[in-house]
Design a binder for these strands. Sequence first.
RNA 1: CGGAGUGUAGCGCAGGGGUAGCGCGCACGGUUCGGGACCGUGAGGCCAUGAGUUCAAAUCUCAUCACUCCGACCA
Length: 583
Amino acid sequence: MKISKLVGKRVKETPNNATIKSHILLLRAGYIKQVGAGIFSLLPPAQRVSLKIQKIIREEMNKIGGQEVLFPVVMPRELWDMSGRYSSIKEEMVRFKDRTGHDMLLGMTHEEAAVHMMMNTATSHEDLPVMIYQIQTKFRDEARPRGGLIRVREFTMKDAYSFHTSQEDLDVYYKKVYDTYIRIYKRLGFKNFVVVEGDNGIMGGKVSHEYMEVTDVGEDSLVICPKCGYSSNMEVAVSVKDENDHTIAGEKEEVFTGNAHTIEEVCKFLEIDAKHTAKAVCYKTATDGKLVIAFLRGDHEINESKLAKQVKSELEAVDVEEEFSLPAGNIGMLNLNVPEGSHIFFDLSLKGLENLVTGANKKDFHIKNVSMTRDLPDVNYVDISLVKQGEKCVRCGETLNLTRGIEIGNIFQLGTKYTKAMGMKVNMPDGSAKEPIMGCYGIGIGRCLASIVEEKADDKGLIWPMTIAPWQVYLCPLRLDNENVSAIADELYKKMEEAGMEVLFDDRNVSAGIKLTDSELMGMPIRVVISPKTLSNGTAEVTMRGNEKEPLFIPIGELIPELKVMIQDEIDDIEEYANGKNN
RNA sequence: CGGAGUGUAGCGCAGGGGUAGCGCGCACGGUUCGGGACCGUGAGGCCAUGAGUUCAAAUCUCAUCACUCCGACCA
């Protein structure tokens, strides 16, 4: 490709609307252009990267028996009524009517379409297991797109669905996909990613894993053990709570605390540490509006996902004074008067604690010297708090790391949720009919593209791994007004293409500075510079993007075979890494 | 959906009641040219949209829309 004809321009200035590295650089280097909030066009270089990512994913999915299919983007509501999701999903799904007034929707995921395809297609246990996948556009009307390609509304996704006759069979296949995903990310050049246990929503019980690129710009909070490899999404992460005071309590005593309501205010007023308090966090259930109170040690934070699972309902904010006549800021565990059917939970962080300060359930008063063992001997403790910095791993006792990540993929055991809802069955050897057990497996292509930028790029620009670079070589002749340079550049370009190399030829007669900075901004792994200077001793200058080593000067005659070796070496390195032991 | 911010040339920005400015980029000519060169000439704008106030609005008022950031949400 000649850069003079390449669609898209490089720009010097940071675009006004971009704040994170990948967004800024992809805009500046002419890879993407924004069309609307969370809606982007890919220019040729980004599309080339995207196609290379897709190629690797296809190879790996095919290797584990995947069959590529294509589901429709637009679906009639009936299909989604079968699973109940036409009504259970809210504004996130775009709906519209076709010319006849029929309810239609834009696909945001394709479980229904996958079951629809397999229904009456796979009819016998002999047809299973089977995995189908597609790479296609999804539209989710996210409330808040952000960060360029990190969180968008329209995106390209690889989604796969497998069907099994037994849980054991799914387990085996699930592990296969689990490993395949690691291979995929490694082949894409990811180094800094982890697999974490995922949240399964309030249904619970099912297995899921999320592949997370570890980076500060990530949206998810992760808990990682540096020693034993335990890693989990914060939503479901567990930990050993840190030590606290277990000395015997004194006599209970009601104290006036006045306007001190928050833990911070109470601690200041009584001159104690938050560790010696218990706080109440209140919600109501989304299903039937019942009161939910969670008691935690004062220095811990509620984990709403965990709490929702305990309650078995989504949670909503509540005004306890208005709706339940409770003294907000003075709610405590003793003498608590709540309506029948309320949900009360005690977090593990409170277990065995003595000398706590807690609300007195009386306006402006707290109680000192509350003892969990003496005053509340029968409570059942559950884990409903967030993991805190400094807490220990439940497996090995090491101090846990808290970090952030971008979800670049996930795998999920769906069970029979969709096959049951839609009535898909296969005949079993014993003559019975059984709903197949499903797994589903997703990878966001654009997110991978942006995430690899987040991991690799430096302040000069993008840096692509050889396996997904839009072009392998940036051919950068300086002084194209020089006939010798021009002739040799043209010839090299022709020969490189003939040799099967992917070359971006900077055929512009512009200053060296522009060409060199553009080459760095665009991020091709190998740059070949020829100029009157290099040609005076018959060489080309070859540098590797992102590699601080001195440039190589290679004789023009040996250049193409040398470059082919360099390219192959890079690819081999990545393949070797991908074939290595997991993690 | 709450909070904050921004909409002026392709991009980045300034201006702030009286006929629209700068830098970059773009086009043309010339001199340069291994780290975003220089000189000259030129093209390019319904100042987000709508309604007010005013002799006069890009500027003031109100509303709307769009985009960004923080939070809520996230099959």
